[in-house]
C-alpha cells in the first residue's frame, strides 16, 4: 500500500530525514518510535503534504501513485488520513458541517451525489455511537475551545467518517489522560480491518499497550536504526532510546 524508498526530507533546506525506507501493506499496523528530534514529526509532515516541508530525495508510492506529487487535498481523497498532533481550532465552523463537507468531497470524487444534512446526521450519529462520543461534538465548532483530549477524539471521529485506507496518527497519545487514551485507542481499534493500514508515530510506548503494532521501527537522527516486532517497543520502554541510538 505505502512504499517509502530512501526518503530524504526537511524544511528550509535543512535535511532532517536522511534516507528512510518503509513498506506498509494493508491490514498492518506500524509504529514509528524515536526520541525528540529524531525526525518523527518531519516524517508525519511530509506524509501529510504540509507545504512547508519538502522531499529532497527518494520517493513515496501510495498504491503505485507518486505521493510526493499530490497535494494534501489529493492525498486525502486518495485515502490517506493524518491524525494531527495539534489539531487546529476553527471558530465559527460547525463540527458536523465540517465533517459533512469532508465526507461530501469524497462522494463528489467518487461521482456520487452530495449527502444532505439530514442523512449525514444519521451517519454521524451512528459513528458517534460506535465511538461512544457525546452529542456536543455535533454542536460545537471545529476544535474550538476543545481540550487536548477532545481534539484527539475529534480526530478519530473524522477518521471514522472518512474511512481512510491508510491512517497516520501523529503523537495521538500526547496530552491524553488515561481515560481519553483508552477511548481514543478503542476507537482506532474499532476502525481497523484487513483492508486498511495504520502508522502510529509516537514517543512513548504506552499507546502500544492499547493498539498492538505488527512492526516497530526506531527512528534516530533521521534514519530507521532498528526494526522489529512488538517486543521491540517493550525493550525500548525498559532500556530507553539510548540503547538503540548509541549502538550505531
Amino acid at each position: 500500500m505505502l512504499e517509502i524508498k530512501d526518503l530524504h526530507a526537511g524544511f528550509d533546506g535543512n535535511e532532517i530525514i536522511k534516507g528512510i525506507s518503509l513498506s506498509v501493506k494493508k491490514g498492518e499496523i506500524h509504529a514509528v518510535m524515536g526520541p525528540n528530534g529524531s525526525g518523527k514529526s518531519t516524517m508525519a509532515k511530509i506524509l501529510s503534504g504540509h507545504p512547508a516541508y519538502e522531499a529532497m530525495g527518494g520517493e513515496i508510492l501510495f498504491n503505485g501513485e507518486n505521493l510526493l506529487e499530490m497535494d494534501a487535498e489529493q492525498r486525502s481523497l486518495a485515502g490517506i488520513f493524518m491524525g494531527f498532533q495539534y489539531p487546529v481550532e476553527v471558530p465559527g465552523v460547525n463540527n458536523a458541517e465540517f465533517l459533512r463537507m469532508a465526507h461530501n468531497a469524497r462522494r463528489v470524487k467518487a461521482g456520487e451525489e452530495e449527502m444532505d444534512p439530514l442523512d449525514f446526521d444519521d451517519l454521524l450519529s451512528e459513528k458517534m455511537n460506535m465511538l461512544g462520543m457525546e452529542k456536543k461534538y455535533k454542536e460545537r465548532n471545529l476544535n474550538d475551545g476543545f481540550s487536548g483530549g477532545e481534539k484527539k477524539k475529534n480526530e478519530i471521529l473524522q477518521m471514522a467518517i472518512l474511512e481512510p485506507k491508510l491512517a497516520i496518527l501523529d503523537e495521538t497519545d500526547s496530552g491524553l489522560d488515561i481515560d481519553a487514551l483508552r477511548v481514543v485507542s478503542e476507537g482506532v481499534n474499532k476502525l481497523r480491518n484487513e483492508n486498511n493500514a495504520l502508522i502510529l508515530i509516537t514517543h512513548y510506548q504506552r499507546l502500544l499497550d492499547y493498539i498492538k503494532p505488527d512492526f516497530v521501527h526506531v527512528l534516530s537522527k533521521g534514519k530507521i536504526v532498528k526494526s522489529g516486532g512488538k517486543g521491540l517497543a517493550l525493550e525500548l520502554e525498559s532500556q530507553g532510546y539510548d540503547w538503540v541510538t548509541t549502538e550505531n
Binding site: 507545504p51 489539531p87 487546529v88 465540517f98
Partner: peptide, 12 residues
C-alpha cells in the same frame, strides 16, 4: 494552518 487542516480532509 486552518486551510491546510481542511485540505488534509479533502476539502478544497
Amino acid at each position: 494552518d486552518q486551510l491546510f487542516y481542511f485540505e488534509s480532509r479533502g476539502i478544497s
